[in-house]
Design a protein around this nucleic acid. Sequence first.
DNA 1: CTACCGATTGACT
DNA 2: GTCAATCGGTAGA
Length: 212
Amino acid sequence: MTDDDFEVDRDYAALPPLSAEFYQGDTVEVARRLLGTLLVRSSPDGLTAGRIVETEAYLAVDDSACHAARGRTRSNAAMFGPAGRAYVYPIHSRWCFNVVTGLPDEGTAVLVRAIVPLAGEDLMRRRRKREKRLELTRGPARLCEALAINRELDHWDLTLGEPLWIAAAEGPLPAEQLRVSPRIGVTSAADLPLRFFLAGNPFVSGKRSGNV
DNA sequence: CTACCGATTGACT
DNA sequence: GTCAATCGGTAGA
């Protein structure tokens, strides 16, 4: 199954959201399981959707890069909520989208770093003010702008469906496509192998040479 | 209140 | 490849 196999008129809005159980497990496992799933966003402007191809896990124990590592604040409160909620965080005047995992009050989440555009590409181009397909959703803040994910969706329960949810992949991910590496951009706990991506996918962020 | 910094991006050499 | 813009969050005075 590749993205080229997709029907262009597929009804993404009808895809059911993943249930809370999907998100409640070990954060590293959830980060791996999210690869290949479909991130869907509906809005008055239209529907956008893409396949998740890169994630990063942020842990509760021995992970100084995790926003929850220095305790609960007003800004990171969503991380301490139930699994399956969105945690949307601003950095450098842009937004990043996370999925809360594990148990309530644990403070773990998975950052979605890249998706492959599957629906609403023209709407993504208008929001991003970019024409090149690769520049629409390659990177955590780019995909947020393409899907109009912002502070309003912090705390959103992704198991409820519209306006933002994640739907299951069509089938199991070929194990030979999975790659693991240190996380991108973090300045502490920079050596932990907590980034997961699909080998060779052009939408995976970071240096292209490191994505094979 | 001020000072510092970051899970980034885009422009530029 | 390098580097600066940019601003909310946080810590500290």
